[in-house]
Design a protein around this nucleic acid. Sequence first.
RNA 1: AGCGGUAUCGUCUAGUGGUCAGGACGGCAGAUUCUCAUUCUGCAAACACGGGUUCAAUUCCCGUUACCGCCGCCA
Length: 486
Amino acid sequence: MEEVRVRIAPSPSGNLHVGTARTALFNYLFAKKNNGKFVLRIEDTDAERTSQEYIDNIFDSLKALGLNWDEGPDVGGPYGPYTQSERFDIYPKYVQQLLDSGFAYECFCTPEELEAEKAEATANKKPYVYSKKCENLTEDEKAKLIAEGRKPAIRFNIAKAQRAFHDSSILEFEDLVKGKLHMDTDLLGDFVIQKSNGAPTYNFAVVIDDMLMKISHVIRGEDHISNTYKQILIYEALGVPVPRFGHLGMILAPDRSKLSKRHGATAVSDFVKEGYLTDALINFVALLGWAPSDGEELKSVDEIAADFRIGEISSSNSIFEYDKLKWMNSHYIKQLSLEELEERLKPYLEKYDLSELSKEHFDKMIEITREPLTLLSDITDAVEYFFGDGVNFDESGKETIETETSQNVLKDFIEKAETWEWNEENLHEKLEVFRGYWKEQGIKPKVTMWAVRAAVTGRTRGADMVGILEVIGKDKTLARAKSALK
RNA sequence: AGCGGUAUCGUCUAGUGGUCAGGACGGCAGAUUCUCAUUCUGCAAACACGGGUUCAAUUCCCGUUACCGCCGCCA
């Protein structure tokens, strides 16, 4: 059995998109499962839309997701280079082969002529297919055109290839995820494989690269299905084995349109910046179209790889539900050790002067505020009242503090707390007694605590009160309580 | 327009020629808690429609509809 080799071939015209990440994941899983190789190739033939920044982003994002490649631009490999722009000198040879074998021909049509053909087709409500008018140009005609200064593009002769290798105009292949797929290639039109400037087009470059890199299985988005027919014909015309193809459904936004920036984060790095864990992201994206056999959804990439079967991927599109991702994210945040969590929380704590807190108090603060975190970035707000001397009241905090009950409770609190020894155990006990006392006065424990909480934190909701008092300290607590008095 | 694909709770999905059509997220209700949250319990929620085939169809076939994709010298 031949070696399984798959690849992810992003085009660096933007940051790594979650959709691409999902395609990368399925390729990676397939390689893992089959003991194969996972190759990264950068498809930057369109120099204008490419930038180094995006290339770096692709590398970093893939790495962050744990999708490590066996061969690629940075690590090299036996079939390099792995950056398409560095491969330009290898394509002409194959173009020539196709020209020589008659499966390709020079096309001198100008953009205007092509435009006119298209316009006519639309006017007649016919699908546009290239007229093939350059298919049978004589050498004299070509020479004349070249003398005029025209530079030819090279087109692939679909019908010729189809007729050479198949009985009818219908081309069929067995898709790894969608099953049998077919298409009438007469509807395809002879497409350009080499632009008039000498650069290969996408459809040609992929085939050559995949062939040379010995890619055995091409797993990609279903937006490539119609390209597949063209590509199969090129493989056949070249006389080389055709890889297996598998096409994944697309990821859609909640409104069923293409997932774009207006829906929120779309690039992996955007999600990371917003406070998502890559473990959650990759787990979530794996569940779009694929379901674990034991029904247990929370799984690491390794666990998923062990359970993965490509034929079980759903072939329909799926909607990217941010709510479920958030749920997963909070789950993965809970899994983190305190140390790991603190490390990841750092970027979101930059606006605070952490030196105000001892290491123990910092730990304590994170321990008592971590529970409700959905995004890492939630920590910024959750921890706001631990810093600075004053208190910023929110609406309900302000309201609460102004009631007569609160004022009474606070006066009592200040008086009693003066005498308290300020450690966790004791505070816990004292607060218990304090609540008990006010309960006897007919004040619900929750109302009692609201008063204290609002005075000290400015809010009526937040972390464990004992912990808050402990971290904030006796002096600051009393100062804040006093200043909340009318 | 043409071609291709897809169709199970709102969403991601499991599943089967005979099932009370299962789970998860979200929603709602309740319990716990000093608050919020967490956690726990419970509830509501789906086989797109129409024809076949069959004793029986959510499941197989055909059509309709809806949605998605593709029709570039972009990738």
